[in-house]
């Protein structure tokens, strides 16, 4: 309850860039040190039966679930729809993908998006986070990957999102 009254109004609007920046620095530092990679974890599991990175990804899911559960008890207003599927229905996505489609369309998009990301991630040697880390370890190819992601973000909302919505 205390926290809620502190972080409201303009204070939060200033904190968005600051807190996300700090979060990024922490994740970037430890990601460089551990070689953290979600797609790399699955790849090592399938290719070499190695679980080191894969357990990192599982730990992320488990830790997020426990943390959401605990924080939602303390500050319920910040977690209005935890546990999402029980609140909103089994296949309603949390906003993020193109809006206003039927549930079955989101299932197809999730399968296409996930499959494409996994396939390209393996071919190029890492998930988006790992590419950023490799880029700033001095890998020039990965720097071009980051540049590509930035261009892709613009292209997606200029052309692709509306094109995808028109398909369904």
């Amino acid at each position: 309850m205390m926290l809620q009254s502190v972080f409201t109004g303009t204070a939060v609007l200033i904190l968005v860039p600051i807190l996300t920046l700090i979060l990024g620095v922490i994740i970037g530092y430890f990601a460089q040190q551990s070689g953290f990679c979600s797609i790399g974890g699955m790849r090592d599991l399938f290719l070499f039966k190695q679980t080191r990175l894969f357990f990192g990804y599982l730990a992320l899911i488990a830790s997020a679930f426990v943390s959401y559960f605990i924080f939602s008890l303390i500050i319920g207003t910040a977690f209005p729809n935890f546990y999402w599927a029980a609140e909103k229905g089994f296949f309603t996505p949390i906003p993020g993908a193109p809006g206003g489609l039927e549930n079955w369309a989101y299932i197809i998009l999730a399968i296409i998006g996930g499959f494409g990301m996994g396939l390209l991630g393996v071919m190029l040697g890492g998930c988006p986070l790992r590419q950023i880390v490799m880029g700033f370890e001095g890998n020039v190819k990965s720097l071009f990957f980051i540049l590509g992601m930035m261009v892709g973000a613009v292209l997606f909302h200029l052309f692709i999102a509306s094109w995808v919505v028109s398909l369904f």
Partner: peptide
């Protein structure tokens, strides 16, 4: 690759994380 990975990620509504 970066362009396509970001497009696929946004179709799913997020990166693996």
């Amino acid at each position: 690759g970066g362009i396509f990975v970001l497009i696929f990620a946004l179709l799913l509504g997020g990166c693996p994380y």
